[in-house]
């Protein structure tokens, strides 16, 4: 009789204890987010560790190291910080070759490949134009700058204004005139993704997503399931226009007219400039997503494609084998390159 009075309580206690037991290895996924490079940078890792606490320590250190690398790159390449190596180059006199860090020179060299292949649609020397439009200021601009100033800038801004010379160990950079100033906003995040992922792998983390302001680079997967990535719909703040499942290393960079813009007299002015006009690019596209293994390349190509438009953009891709793209046009239709991975999501 005592037994059946107390049994319910015993069962309750047993049930509570049982929830704490887990003999098999459990998958562990963790996301860390920091404010870096003027945006949110997140690193998501996944693992099936045999020793959960040892993994937790290793993961934390690896993610820390990756974030430190991103912060270091920001310190070198930010045009917003007056004391960064990049800013000092911008402050140096024009028309003369100046020494620069090999890391910077390498990045510029890779960017110049895209510049040349795209006929100047991708340009790393737009700092004066960006300052003119005011997109890097807070608060963001609301009006169009004086058209005469834009024309004046355009007159001086001929292609080939960035010239690298010297050796690999001691490179030199020459900026032609004051209309040229380094701004790596269209390539630095891709480069940061590459470096962050390299650090993660050095630290023994092999399944991760690094997300720098909406530019993603993945390594590994989630055990036997791929990473599931979405691509933001350019006109739906919480909406996704395509889903991409990936289990091999991949970078996805999206450039859109919805990230930084203002509307003035019914016209949308966004932050992706066409170097050939001095105005925001009007190529018929509202969003471009480029896939490539290399983040630096994907980042540069996404800007180039946005400026070039669908036809010339897809043609440009063919000159960089392994790169693919999904484009959304102003009429909301989608175009994609043959090898683009992912499924468009039906319009709700």
């Amino acid at each position: 009789m005592i037994f059946c009075r107390r049994t319910p309580v015993l069962l309750l206690i047993l049930a509570l204890l049982a929830t704490g037991c887990s003999p098999t290895a459990q998958p562990v996924s963790r996301t860390t987010t920091r404010l870096l490079m003027g945006t949110l940078v997140s690193i998501t890792t996944w693992s099936l560790p045999t020793n959960a606490s040892a993994w937790e320590e290793q993961e934390r250190q690896g993610v820390d190291a990756a974030f430190r690398e991103v912060a270091r790159i920001e310190g070198v390449m930010s045009s917003h910080r007056a004391d960064s190596p990049l800013s000092r180059l911008n402050q140096a006199p024009r028309g003369i070759a100046h020494p620069l860090l090999p890391e910077l020179a390498d990045l510029l060299r890779r960017g110049l490949e895209v510049t040349n292949a795209s006929g100047g649609a991708f340009d790393m020397g737009l700092d004066p134009l960006i300052l003119l439009w005011g997109f890097s200021r807070e608060p963001p601009p609301q009006t169009v700058p004086d058209p005469q100033r834009i024309t004046a800038w355009l007159e001086h801004h001929a292609p080939g204004g960035l010239t690298l010379s010297g050796t690999v160990e001691q490179p030199l950079l020459r900026l032609a005139n004051a209309s040229h100033g380094l701004d790596l906003g269209a390539i630095a995040k891709g480069y940061a993704l590459d470096r962050a992922v390299a650090v993660l792998q050095e630290q023994g983390i092999h399944n991760a997503i690094v997300n720098a302001g909406g530019n993603l680079r993945t390594i590994g997967a989630k055990g036997d399931r791929p990473w599931r990535l979405g691509i933001r719909h350019p006109r739906q703040a919480e909406g996704v226009m395509a889903v991409v499942e990936v289990d091999r290393p991949l970078t996805m960079v999206t450039s859109g007219d919805y990230e930084r813009f203002f509307i003035h007299q019914d016209q949308r002015y966004h932050h992706i400039f066409d170097p050939r006009t001095g105005y925001p690019a009007r190529s018929g596209l509202i969003s471009v997503t480029v896939q490539a293994e290399d983040g630096t390349l994907a980042d540069a190509l996404s800007t180039a494609l946005f400026v070039l438009g669908a036809e010339q953009g897809l043609a440009l891709l063919r000159r960089f084998p392994g790169s693919e793209a999904l484009l959304m046009l102003e009429d909301r239709s989608l175009r994609r390159s043959a090898g683009f991975i992912g499924q468009p999501v039906a319009e709700p």
Partner: peptide, 8 residues
């Protein structure tokens, strides 16, 4: 939660 990250 079925999406691990969104490119935007």
């Amino acid at each position: 939660a079925d999406l691990d990250a969104v490119s935007e």
